[in-house]
Design a protein around this nucleic acid. Structure first.
Lengths: 204, 204
DNA sequence: TGTACATCAGTGAACGCGCGTTCACTGATGTAC
DNA sequence: TGTACATCAGTGAACGCGCGTTCACTGATGTAC
């Protein structure tokens, strides 16, 4: 191993440790609530090392959000199931994601960002939206192509209504009331949402 | 005017000034972002006066939330319109409330509260939920009594689905993407939600 | 092989700022006589 | 009527703590010869 390799690997390991510690603490304490000292301790690193890897706290938060988006969303690509099941499947994954405690903590952190940090929100929003909205829209278009839906369907509107119903049970109740459905309950709720959705947008 | 009256009135006036200033700044800056010094300045009062009226910052926030809940929710009582219009009307009010910038700022503040402050969330949640959920449920039950709905309707589920669709367009898009619909667009969206809802829960 | 040196990610300790909070004091008013 | 006093909401200035950030230094390793 050359010196450069040694250093690069060590640095990458440390960076990973820092991101992991920061994600954990930002999720549980929020961006302002988690101090750089706590994060450094959790990552078994000095505070000065945090600043060698990230310009400041805001950049660290930004990196956490970026890695999270990259890690969570790719496997949301629509699975090759029969279309109606595919829509239920995506809905369920969406519901599960929004129910996850760590995700919820980070959503809390993102939602509460103010001032210059608010642009992470816009960024996260744009990405999360584009990826999830696409997964839902794709599934809906496939259903329409298969003749399973009202041919006059407004895809964006239909998608928003389905997402909204799922979000109520997961994101809204989670953020506002600290509620989290059991796995079984979540499945029932999501299936109910899909059923309601088909009553409006399915073939008449 | 007796001395006591004079003092009481002055104190009440100051208290109102403080609550108003705190509401404004908590909404725009968040609880941690708004400093007691800023709030005092906005209220034209010294910081020490804040502490004569409220035990600490957390209690001040609590008072702001309490007064907000008291001020906003009472006139949400279901109006005496024909039931279907009444449901649309409640939905629209709900959507408008969740779109209001100051409400949104305070929801942000409430959602991001951590640690001991998190109990405001539970408290606000319980109240807001009980009042709005009741308004929706009452309207739905009246529709059922009038024979306009599927007699087997699950009221809680139906209510959640309708609230969820409205929340997506207002609360979720607002909190995550900083979007806010125009008055006209909101009306269209809410009417769409109610239409979808009736496709599932209306008389078959 | 051995030794002096170069490199640079990582570090412990310190800095200074802003914040929530408190302290000792003020001043507007009614009351006693 | 006039004067000394009591009351207490309100105040300006200070306190001290915790935080994000930075500084001067360390130590693990390869390289030169």
């Amino acid at each position: 191993m050359t010196l450069d390799e040694y250093r690069t690997r060590r640095a990458e390991r440390k960076r990973g440790d820092i991101i992991r510690a920061a994600r954990l603490l930002f999720a549980s304490e929020g961006v302002e609530g988690a101090s750089m000292a706590e994060i450094a301790k959790e990552a078994a690193v000095s505070t000065a090392t945090l600043y060698r890897h990230f310009e400041d706290k805001e950049q660290l938060f930004s990196a956490v959000v970026d890695e999270l988006v990259a890690a969570v969303l790719p496997d949301e690509a629509p699975p090759e199931a029969p279309p109606r099941e595919a829509l239920t499947e995506i809905s369920l994954r969406y519901g599960q994601l929004l129910s996850d405690p760590e995700i919820r903590g980070l959503v809390r952190a993102v939602v509460s960002a103010r001032g210059s940090a608010a642009r992470f929100r816009t960024r996260l929003g744009r990405r999360g939206k584009s990826i999830f909205a696409r997964a839902f829209s794709d599934a809906i278009r496939r259903l329409r192509r298969d003749g399973a839906l009202d041919p006059d369907i407004d895809v964006d509107r239909a998608r928003s209504e389905l997402q909204g119903m799922i979000e109520h049970y997961t994101l809204v109740r989670g953020l506002l009331f600290d509620e989290r459905p059991s796995k079984k309950k979540l499945r029932d709720q999501v299936e109910g949402c899909v059923e309601t959705w088909f009553a409006r947008w399915g073939k008449r």
